[in-house]
């Protein structure tokens, strides 16, 4: 379970201060597929960067199974990071390593048994349907295939949570569908909690059981996806869903 409590993030730069997140609170249950939707600049990426510990919040807490991960440092932070897999919009694969080496990478950060790593990589590549491309380089793959490799890599260390930052925004409609189906399969098969940041309604609608709407640094609405899609309450959700007269 992930509990986000009164999370605020303020950036200071030369032009002044920017409040990216303002008092954000929500709870994500185990095995949820939780969608966070918002316009660009709403603060959703900052929220994901706080969750993945790439950004330290100004105030507030992020509790992962009761432990506050937002203030961790050093070895404790690295350990906590292994419990979370992250998938990025731009894939962020190692371009000079093969598909198999990319997936093996997180496993090789600690002491490892080469045989165990090899069989785990095989298993993960079969899971994402790329067993036959193990020795290819990322440059030889299509966008959808790259995202599958990134997914396999994120799952390598058996995380309990998978964070996805606009995972399908660079993909075409058909590829988006297949990646979303894969995410939902993974959720069922492995029981991994999935958090998806997106600006695409379709993504939330097709696989998220719960969702939150972010607008101007705040969560303006959250709950069951079905309920929100049927009858949105906040003005921005009404606007997004085209249901202004609900």
């Amino acid at each position: 379970m992930i509990e986000i409590q009164n999370l605020t993030k303020i950036f200071h730069d030369k032009t002044g201060t920017v409040t990216a997140l303002q008092d954000v609170s929500t709870t994500i249950q185990d095995k949820d597929i939780f969608g966070i939707i918002g316009m660009s600049g709403a603060g959703k990426s900052t929220l994901l960067r706080c969750l993945s510990m790439l950004e330290e919040p100004t105030s507030g807490k992020i509790l992962l199974d009761g432990q506050d991960i937002s203030t961790l440092k050093g070895a404790a932070q690295r350990q906590a990071r292994k419990k979370m897999g992250v998938v990025f919009q731009g894939y962020n694969l190692l371009m000079q390593k093969t598909v198999a080496e990319n997936v093996a990478f997180p496993l090789k950060l600690e002491k490892y048994d080469p045989k165990a790593v090899e069989s785990r990589v095989q298993e993960l590549l079969s899971l994402v349907g790329l067993a036959d491309r193990a020795s290819a380089y990322p440059a030889q793959l299509s966008g959808g295939q790259k995202q599958r490799v990134a997914l396999a890599r994120a799952l390598a260390s058996q995380p309990s949570v998978l964070l996805c930052d606009e995972p399908t925004s660079a993909l075409d409609a058909l590829t988006t569908q297949s990646v979303l189906k894969l995410l939902s399969d993974i959720n069922h098969k492995l029981g991994v909690t999935i958090i998806i940041i997106t600006h695409e309604l379709e993504v939330v609608h097709s696989i998220c059981n719960r969702m939150a709407v972010i607008d101007e640094s705040r969560i303006v609405e959250q709950g069951d996806t079905k309920a929100i899609f049927e009858c949105p309450q906040s003005p921005i959700a009404k606007l997004l869903l085209g249901k202004e007269n609900c």
Partner: peptide, 18 residues
């Protein structure tokens, strides 16, 4: 080197040396 790749690896729990 792509900053995104460095961030991805950081989020896997890699040390700076790694």
């Amino acid at each position: 080197v792509d900053k995104g790749v460095v961030e991805a690896v950081k989020s896997m729990g890699a040390t700076n040396w790694q």
